[in-house]
């Protein structure tokens, strides 16, 4: 049970003056249950890549396997795939259209042909999981704040109970508080539902705290792929492609450079603090 991408290429507007090679020979294996971060500079092909995971874009060449079956096969059940791989687009609140929040969240499961009771059960469950208060359920989605709208939109995908949840820059345009709230909810979801979560972002800081694996994209290619501490070791190369490692990485390298016995692989503020305490204890 996994997603496998082989030699995937994608070219926008092929054969015109506006041709754009957006993905180059991408090979990835995304096993079940992982919490994966996809990171890259604007225009590096992150959004293009994730739209291949549920078949919205079809690779110019290469193949995508879902649970071992090639999704470009003749007669592959595309709509079923889209319910299994839930894709939350960037600014998902722009897709809300129903008269009230609850009905909007029901749209996805209803399209799966489920019974009305099941549809409602899933909608409640999804709204609960994104942490939206019950008093908002019967409001028009357009009365809500930006962060609340985004939760509703994410619930709309969750209600389809996907096996893989892909979020394209879910924190774009939110304030720090809203950003942390959404990311915490996503982390909780991953823990509760044991689903694969793929989180797209251009901020290392966001991603480093949550994910167990980072895929770095640059100019349509996969540049690095590994655990956060492995990837951050390349912090100098990351800078060259317009990305920065988390601030603690720089701090730890500076301290190590001055002779402090700290762990330069620390990726979060907590880890860094522990390591610095330990180093201080040793010195004194």
């Amino acid at each position: 049970m996994s997603i496998k991408i082989e030699h995937l290429n994608y070219v926008y507007s092929e054969g015109t003056a506006f041709e754009r090679h957006a993905l180059r020979d991408v090979n990835l294996e995304l096993p079940d249950g992982q919490f994966i971060g996809v990171i890259g500079h604007t225009g590096s092909g992150k959004s293009t890549l994730i739209q291949h995971l549920n078949g919205l874009l079809r690779g110019t060449s290469g193949a995508v396997y879902y649970n071992g079956r090639n999704i470009y096969e003749e007669g592959y059940p595309m709509r079923e795939l889209r319910s299994k791989v839930g894709l939350v687009f960037q600014y998902p609140e722009h897709q809300l259209f129903e008269v009230d929040v609850f009905t909007d969240v029901c749209f996805g499961p209803k399209n799966l042909g489920l019974s009305p009771e099941e549809v409602e059960r899933r909608a409640y469950e999804a709204l609960r999981q994104v942490g939206l208060k019950e008093k908002h359920y019967k409001k028009s989605p357009f009365e809500l704040s930006g962060g609340q709208k985004r939760r509703v939109a994410i619930a709309g995908i969750l209600a389809m109970e996907p096996e893989v949840l892909v979020l394209d820059e879910p924190t774009a345009g939110l304030d720090p508080r809203g950003r942390d709230d959404i990311l915490d909810q996503v982390a909780k979801l991953h823990a509760e539902r044991h689903i694969t979560v793929i989180l797209v972002s251009h901020s290392m800081e966001d991603i480093a705290r949550y994910v167990e694996r980072i895929i770095v994209m640059n100019k349509g290619e996969v540049r690095y792929d590994g655990a956060p501490r492995e990837v951050f070791q390349h912090y100098q190369e990351l800078e060259q492609i317009g990305l920065a490692a988390p601030q603690v990485t720089y701090l730890m390298h500076d301290l190590a450079g001055q002779g402090w016995p700290v762990d330069t692989d620390a990726t979060t503020v907590e880890e860094a603090a522990d390591s610095i305490y330990a180093a201080l204890a040793k010195k004194c």
């Binding site: 939350v88 687009f89 998902p92 897709q95 399209n111």
Partner: peptide
């Protein structure tokens, strides 16, 4: 194009 894709991701046809 974007909205169409987003709704297709929610099973719209």
């Amino acid at each position: 194009d974007k909205i169409m894709k987003a709704q297709m991701a929610r099973g719209a046809d």
